[in-house]
Amino acid sequence: MRYVKWSLLGLVALLLFGFFHYTLPQHDIVRIVGTENRRMDIGANSWFFASPDVGNAASTSRDIFFVNAVFADGGTMEYRNEDTGWGWPPYFKMDSFSLATEAKELVSTKAAPVWVAVTHYGWRNQLFTIFPNVIALRQVDGPDATIIPWANIVILTLLLLALFMIRRMWLQFRERTIDPAVIDVRQSIDELDDRADRVGDRARGFFGRMFGRK
């Protein structure tokens, strides 16, 4: 049972890690090399795409803005640029058109690079055709610029505090309610056992006296 317990805890931890890694904002420093508006059919991978832009009707086929970028080491990345609206994750992004224009303004060449900090959430996976979603763009001095993930620090700190408080509340609840109830149940069981033993002793004594007579 111990292995089952730790396996379940490991699975829960893995799911939580994946959830937060996908949802929390991440930062890339890249050079934007182009933008495009691509028509895509959203099918089984719709889970990894945002809802249609705010004000548009829901459809399995729609236009999606993309931002094409290159890292300092030559690696490439494609970001989608979709509104999140009032849905999940709760970024309340409704400016995908403005962000597309901003991305076009930041396009640069290898000879005259403009480095941009891209704030995004999500993953890039070629097998399932999923892309991280751009939340914000900000020009930085160079590819080695330091980005401190303040939002992640604040969110994870608040989450840890909430978990700590929940654990404290649970321990107090168990100490004040569950443990006394368990003790009462055990005492009741012990009393029943004692009564059963006394009844058994009396019965054995009665039958012993009755059958022991000559």
Rank of each mutant, 00 (worst) to 15 (best):
M1E: 03
M1A: 09
Y3Q: 07
K5E: 04
K5H: 11
K5T: 13
S7L: 08
S7F: 10
L16D: 14
G18S: 03
F20A: 13
Y22Q: 03
T23A: 15
Q26W: 10
H27N: 15
I29Q: 07
I32G: 05
V33R: 08
R38T: 05
I42D: 07
G43L: 10
A44D: 12
A44Q: 04
W47G: 02
F48P: 00
A50Q: 07
P52N: 06
V54Q: 13
G55L: 04
A57P: 00
A58D: 09
S61W: 04
S61Y: 04
D63P: 04
F65C: 04
N68T: 01
A69M: 09
V70S: 06
F71R: 12
F71C: 06
D73E: 08
D73S: 12
G74V: 06
G75L: 00
R80A: 11
R80Q: 10
N81Y: 02
D83Y: 11
W86H: 05
Y91D: 07
M94L: 08
D95T: 05
F97H: 09
F97R: 12
F97V: 04
A100L: 05
A100N: 07
A100D: 04
E102M: 12
A103L: 10
K104E: 15
E105L: 08
E105D: 01
K110V: 09
K110Y: 07
A111M: 05
A111H: 05
A112F: 02
P113H: 01
P113W: 15
P113E: 15
P113S: 01
V114M: 11
V114S: 14
V118N: 10
R124H: 11
N125I: 11
F128Q: 11
I130S: 04
N133W: 12
R138S: 14
V140K: 09
G142K: 12
T146K: 10
T146V: 10
I147L: 14
I148M: 12
I148W: 02
P149I: 07
I153Q: 02
I155K: 04
L156Q: 09
L158E: 12
L158M: 14
L161Y: 07
F164N: 06
M165K: 11
R167L: 12
L171D: 14
Q172L: 13
R174E: 09
T177R: 07
T177L: 11
T177Q: 13
I178W: 14
D179Y: 15
A181W: 14
A181T: 08
R186K: 15
R186C: 11
S188G: 14
D190R: 13
D190S: 12
L192P: 03
L192T: 05
L192G: 03
R195N: 02
A196V: 12
D197I: 06
D197W: 14
D197E: 15
R198C: 03
G200F: 05
R202V: 08
G205V: 08
G208I: 03
R209M: 06
R213Y: 01
